[in-house]
Nucleic acid binder design. Structure first.
Lengths: 355, 355
DNA sequence: TTGTATGCGTTATCAC
DNA sequence: GTGATAACGCATACAA
């Protein structure tokens, strides 16, 4: 006996059909609308359904039969709360939600590295497709899992290699623009504040470029170094104002040897750097210029308007959704590389005379 | 023929069993671990599986059989991106994720008011339970849907009536504390900046208290009015710094008749009000005192530390998760009402002498 | 337009 | 410790 041991079994579509005096398939069709049904039977079925308290096909059974669950997994490499602290990720989620909703799909939040084995995770969740966000080495593993299951997968901001559609940004070129902007303004001594360099999220001076395993970080770093090969780089432990602040403090610790320009790899970091500059008694942009990356609205930063690179975050999410949609249709989805737009604000200016 | 018309069918557990020379049930048990299996057969099955590229039971079939999908729906009443802009919701999600993970469940993001009719949402998603967040009238509808489906449901910060467990806050009492604090400091002229008053998110002066349909807003408003019955109230269109700023501008528009204290219903709103005060040339707290609500960390607000009511946001999420867990076990879950803690910062001070 | 038959891939139950 | 059996609830191909 697998039927609910206590109480009444929930009505099934067969019950409804019997009650309505039609066959199960007819009743099914009434709910799915896949085939025309005479208005009369339609009514009978619907009435029977409400009489029995039947609220529609059981999604579990339907998805088994259809081979689709209507669920797209979104895999993060961090704690969910942390992920949503990032405005860019939030916007992407928005775009992604927009794009998968028409498919009749919802987003299932997943972490790649489930703590206890008990989690649902990639292996056990009924996914139609998966979107991997970020790209530290950890995701490789998730990627394997998903591919093994034969589930369509799209990667945002990360290199999944070869056969996996990828939604990315022209990080290097974009960052180079910001750097060139500084150089054109006469800056020669520049410091870089990077996003986390490695999966272990450590904060500190970056002495060895090879130590950078996170794709985005590496690409943007390369862009900055293209213009300022000798720039020093400090890796933050996350994209937060506070992290930028901490980095800024280090950078401005020795006022005698401070840089005249700071290239931050995110707007939040830039905001923190600006606050650190203020704390150190430096004016922005008179004494020090700061550039960001992302083009988000940083609350509480007024009257500053960051010189930054605006990335189409929402569009990235949408594109990922579109790619998922395509793959679900059987069409192979292409990788997309979005372009950032340079936007000059009031946080950069001519390099000050020699310090 | 329902089998994939083109290409090879994915291996099923029966295939694996056959290949391993055991019965399907035995193979199943190897994967579920529900029953002891001899090491020998275990190996055989696992080997057969990897030989066939079988990566584990199909979650769809498993969930049909088990009657559980391992998915908890989280229903928001707004755009996802908007929801996650709210630090409190983010923290709740964190707590919720924590609490459902041990259950082996994941969180499915859902919006109650799907734009196009095509959405999947509550009606078609394979949910084991649902958590409704927020509380405008819109959620009523979602609630009906879920209840009709017989799915356990928990509501956070909203009155679902009678039989639905509710995770809430002592909003009124808490807000009263902040108001009393202001009163004790000698304030008499006080303005209130509320969260959205109604589902339509309109901004503006609140002339009719009855117009407030959002539970949280109403409760906090009541708490403030308990102490300052004549206070004027301005409804923001969302919990953002910018909204608080806009409200603050209105409130401080006429400096002659400005209040000496402002009770904001969220920390972000309070932060905005403070900035508006600064813009108006008012010092906080010397000229005007401001209180917030939530107890979150507001980036960029330093050196201010809000006088506010600290709510246990993460715990709320956890409690919701626990309630879900209980209901899934068959145990009826009780409603919980958390208590806020008053925290005095440096944004409130004695009322200034008569203006 | 409606009905019939079949299987989607698992797993709970029980007997061995 | 292992195997046979029977659902789980539905949607589709096809015949009527």
């Amino acid at each position: 006996m697998s039927r609910q041991d206590t109480g009444i079994r929930r009505a099934t579509i067969s019950d409804v059909a019997r009650e309505a005096g039609v066959s199960p398939s007819t009743a099914s069709v009434v709910f799915s609308g896949k085939t025309p049904v005479s208005e009369a039977t339609r009514r009978r079925v619907l009435d029977a359904a409400s009489a029995l308290g039947y609220t529609g096909p059981d999604p579990r059974a339907a998805s088994l039969r259809r081979g689709r669950s209507g669920i797209v997994g979104v895999v993060f490499e961090e704690h969910l709360g942390t992920a949503f602290l990032d405005p860019v990720k939030t916007l992407m989620m928005d775009g992604l939600a927009d794009a998968v909703t028409p498919l009749g799909a919802g987003l299932l939040l997943l972490r790649d590295h489930e703590p206890t084995g008990s989690g649902p995770s990639l292996t056990t969740a009924p996914l139609d497709a998966a979107v991997l966000i970020g790209c530290s080495g950890l995701l490789r593993e998730s990627l394997q899992t998903v591919k093994a299951r034969g589930i369509p997968v799209v990667v945002i901001e990360g290199d999944a290699g070869d056969d996996v559609p990828r939604i990315g940004l022209d990080n290097r070129e974009a960052q180079r623009q910001a750097a060139s902007h500084l150089r054109a303004l006469g800056h020669r001594e520049v410091a870089i504040v990077t996003l986390p360099a490695r999966a272990d999220w450590q904060r500190g001076w970056l002495h060895d470029d090879a130590a950078v395993t996170v794709d985005v970080t590496r690409e943007r770093l390369a862009g900055a170094l293209d213009v300022f090969p000798d720039a020093t780089a400090y890796a933050a432990a996350g994209s937060f104002i506070d992290e930028g602040f901490a980095a800024g403090r280090e950078i401005f610790a020795d006022l005698e040897r401070r840089p005249t320009g700071v290239i931050a790899q995110s707007d939040l970091l830039a905001a923190g750097v600006i606050r650190a500059a203020e704390e150190a008694g430096l004016r922005v942009p008179e004494d020090v210029s700061v550039t960001g990356f992302d083009g988000i609205v940083v609350d509480g930063l007024a009257p500053y308007e960051l010189t930054t690179l605006v990335q189409p975050a929402t569009d990235k999410g949408r594109a990922a959704g579109a790619a998922v949609a395509a793959m679900l249709e059987g069409t192979p989805a292409a990788s997309i590389r979005f372009t950032c737009t340079f936007r000059e604000g009031n946080t950069t200016g001519p390099a000050p005379a020699l310090v």
